[in-house]
Design a protein around this nucleic acid. Structure first.
Lengths: 217, 217
DNA sequence: TATAAAGTTTAGATTAGTCTAAAAATTTAT
DNA sequence: ATAAATTTTTAGACTAATCTAAACTTTATA
């Protein structure tokens, strides 16, 4: 069984590797969990010994099949708890992360099964992120353009137009891959959209921009 | 803020002291949290330094006003979580303790307030133990005889007849101060009671015995 | 392609919590 | 009242996780 700390490292590595695709460097891990590179080196050796990641000195780490499966179990717990906090306890979806970060380490498979059932087996958390099932399987939603999105929350996945000028525009207004957005209103006049980014900032984007942004819901 | 471990020591000391009344000895603490006396000595020094207990070498410890207040906050969390697990998630009341033991350490005052509200501000957990309010106040239920108890769970508090023979009888059948019992049936024939002890053992006790056992509900 | 810069690892120290074994204090029993 | 038994504390060691500073690799640059 993993310690609280080992779980945090594994989850961070999994996220930084885009779900096990890329390999991840020491400094990235250190920055993402607010620790020093030397500490990361120590810990990745330990995780490698447990076959959760493969580690090549000076060249970063990759999650193994086992590591991926354990990371997904933690992510599943995190997202189920976030859903509980928002849907049942009435938290605002911006204030649940820190608490879910604690709750995700509770060890009880039965608890998670029962919580899942109590929540009606949700497929996404309040931020729109998919909740892996008991076997770690993630049901990936079809990508649609922001223009086609309903008024529920959506996650930015990619762009059709990847010209520097468009990417520059997106970063200026605060839209980035992984952001949670919500279409608040569509203006009949020119088809432009009023969207909320990460529950805070409201911006207007044109119809053309909306057609070039791909999201999942 | 207290660590996970400090919280466990404080809670154990509070319980062993009968809510801050008696002082508690090193070996009792060691046994109750499955550790060695030497470790207890180290930890009580630390808790004393934080003014949560007073410690007199070789003569045990007492909880301070502050310590009591913090212990009650932990107990409140534990009992609210137990209530949640049973009432909302459908756990059996015998299988919630270990999970609640983990959940009680989650740090978020807001979470506990919202959980309390979600549960309808319960005054007792599924075992019948009172849940301290936000200020640590425990509403003590009136003591009644087991004969007068309803079919909800009840906690054994004391006995009217404290003769050795009666106490011996009680220990033989498995009834002790603090046990959770539930009257399952009253036999019309002689007024004897069928009771369940700690959710497991079923025993029959006479009308006379029932009249001499005091409980709260 | 040699060298500087950046990134990573190692070595050694630190803190929290635990343990064993030995020493000290207290309690019990004679 | 003193010796024996019990309880508690101290001393010193160990593990997990962290850190700093120095050494080492890799990458970028000139």
């Amino acid at each position: 069984m993993l310690s609280f700390t080992e779980e945090n490292y594994l989850k961070a590595i999994y996220h930084l590797s885009d779900g096990g695709l890329k390999s991840v460097l020491t400094n990235e891990i250190a920055e993402s969990i607010q620790t020093k590179p030397a500490s990361v080196t120590d810990m990745v050796k330990k995780l490698a010994l447990k076959n959760l990641i493969t580690y090549e000195k000076y060249h970063g780490v990759k999650v193994t099949r086992q590591g991926k499966s354990q990371a997904l179990a933690i992510i599943r717990k995190h997202r189920l708890w976030e859903t509980f906090l928002v849907e049942k306890l009435g938290f605002d979806w911006g204030e649940v992360h820190d608490v879910a970060e604690q709750l995700e380490h509770i060890q009880s498979p039965l608890l998670i099964e029962k919580l899942d059932e109590f929540l009606g087996f949700p497929s996404a958390d309040p931020h729109g992120h998919p909740i892996p099932d008991k076997n770690g399987k993630i049901t990936i939603a079809r990508q649609i353009t922001l223009l086609e999105a309903t008024e529920k929350k959506a996650i930015i996945r990619s762009v059709k137009d990847s010209s520097a000028s468009f990417l520059d525009y997106l970063s200026k207004v605060g839209i980035y891959i992984g952001a949670t957005v919500q279409v608040m209103e569509r203006l009949a006049f020119d088809g432009s959209l009023e969207i909320k980014i990460d529950g805070k900032k409201k911006v207007y984007i044109s119809r053309e921009a909306g057609e070039n942004i791909l999201v999942t819901q």
